[in-house]
Every structure is written in C-alpha cells, then in structure tokens.
Computed example of a mutant assay.
Amino acid sequence: MSPSWYDLLGVAPDASAEEVRGAWRTAIADLDPTDRRFAALNQAAQVLLDPQRRAAYDAELAAAAALAGPTAEADLAEPDHVAATPEPETDRAGRRGVPAWLLVGLAVAVLVVAGVGAWLDVTTPSDRSVEDATSAAQSAAERAVVPILSYDATSLDQSKAAAEQYLTGDYRSEYDKLFEGVIRQNAPSTKTVVTAQLVRSGIVRSGDDRVQVFLLVNQTRTNAADDQPTIYKNWVTMTMEKVGDDWLVAGMDT
C-alpha cells in the first residue's frame, strides 16, 4: 500500500489537528516553495486539517484496507493441529468458486468507496471553481502582505489605512489593537521604518470561499539607533476569506 498523508507528515491516524499542524510546519521549515515535497506536504496538511475532507480520506483508507484482506500475521497464527479443510466448491468447468466472504468484503468495500465518491460530489465544489478561487485568493494575499507588514513612523495613519483595506472586519479589530498598542507607542520615538518585500508564495489549503496562503517575506528595518538597514526573513500564513466579491485577510500566523 502506498504511503498515506499521515505517513508523509509522520503522524498517527488519530493525531490531533495541532499535532498535524506542528508536523507540517516542521516538515516545510527548510524547504523552498518550489520543491516538490513542499507541494505534497501542503496537500497532506490541507486534507488532514479539514475535518470533512479528513473524514472522507479516512473512509478511503478503510476501504483500501478492506480490499487488502487478512494480514499476514493472521495467516501465520494457525494452531499446530488443524482439522482437514474441505476443498472449495467447484463449478461445472472444474474451476474453484470464489469464497462467499471475499464477495461480501468486496461488495462492502465498493459500496464504501462509492458512498465516499457520492458524498464528495455533493459537498465539494468543482475543481475549476476551487482552482479559480484559490488563484484569486493567492493574488489578493500577495497584494495585502506588503502594506500589512510595512509601516513608517513619520506617517503612521497612512500606514494603518493602507493595511486596513485588506482586512475583514473581525481581523481589523485585532490588527488595530496591535498597531495602536505596539507600533504607535514605539515607532515615533525610535523613528522606525519597516518595508516589506514579497519573495514568493504558495498554497497551504484550497477552498471555494476560504484559502490559506503561505508567503515568504523580507522586512527591511531602519531606525534612529541604527542607520544601516537590517533585513529580517519571515514566513507568514494568511487565511483569506471571500467577502462579497473581494478576498480579504481573516487571520495571520507569522
């Protein structure tokens, strides 16, 4: 049997969402987004961090296990003295018949797989719809990350306004608390200027109205105490949410 998404991330099938998220972050920490493993690890996290998709995936694994039949260990665990087993029934052509338990097992497995497929057809948006939505969300995240992670001590009101236009109402409240409580309290006295530059982005989780985007960002900082620019390399996971016709930032994990 080929490795599962659980195997890829190195977690148990009953791992919690936090364990899956932690394993994913550790696995991609040193990978370039263009690396093939980066995309595979993101896809694994995308499935296992979505309760509905994970349930459907677990059903597929169960169906595959049913098709695999009894384990080798069970076959080897025979007693030393076994009564003679009757020969399987044969048809008129002399061929052995298929055991009834195997037919029943196959029928159940087929029904499970068919049921999962029907469930996905009903509950999952079309691939094209998700693809278009994901692309739009990624572009919006790329536009938003620079003003959100940049500010200038000499024009804080403009910096704040530039960022707020990309935020949902709920997340704007969180951003305002951070901006007023930290940046506005410290930046004027230190004359700090932070300028963000997008390096590259990738998709963590696709969706029709909610998408997570991974972004690598360089932040250049200058202030009164250090006239030489300092560059910080950061990664950000942005949760993008469809609000009307726009994709807005609903959360950030830096």
Rank of each mutant, 00 (worst) to 15 (best):
L167N: 02
D91V: 02
Q212T: 01
V199H: 12
D32K: 09
A107V: 07
A62Y: 07
R53E: 15
L9T: 03
Y175S: 04
E19H: 10
R205K: 14
D246Y: 08
P86F: 07
R36E: 12
A136P: 01
D152L: 02
K242R: 15
F38T: 00
V130F: 06
S173C: 00
A64R: 11
E174L: 12
A144T: 02
N223S: 13
Q228V: 09
P99W: 12
Q46V: 00
A187F: 04
F179Q: 02
T195D: 15
L8Q: 10
S155L: 03
E89T: 04
E142L: 00
P79I: 01
P86I: 03
A62C: 07
A114L: 11
Q138N: 06
Q219M: 10
Y171P: 05
L156K: 00
V82L: 15
R53Q: 15
A100V: 14
D209R: 15
G244H: 05
R128M: 09
A144K: 01
R200V: 00
S173Y: 07
D227K: 08
D208M: 07
G94F: 08
D157R: 08
Q228P: 00
T190G: 04
V20T: 11
V217I: 13
Y175G: 03
T192H: 06
E60P: 00
P70R: 04
T134N: 05
L31C: 09
V108S: 12
A27F: 05
A224L: 14
L198P: 13
R221P: 01
D209A: 15
F214S: 11
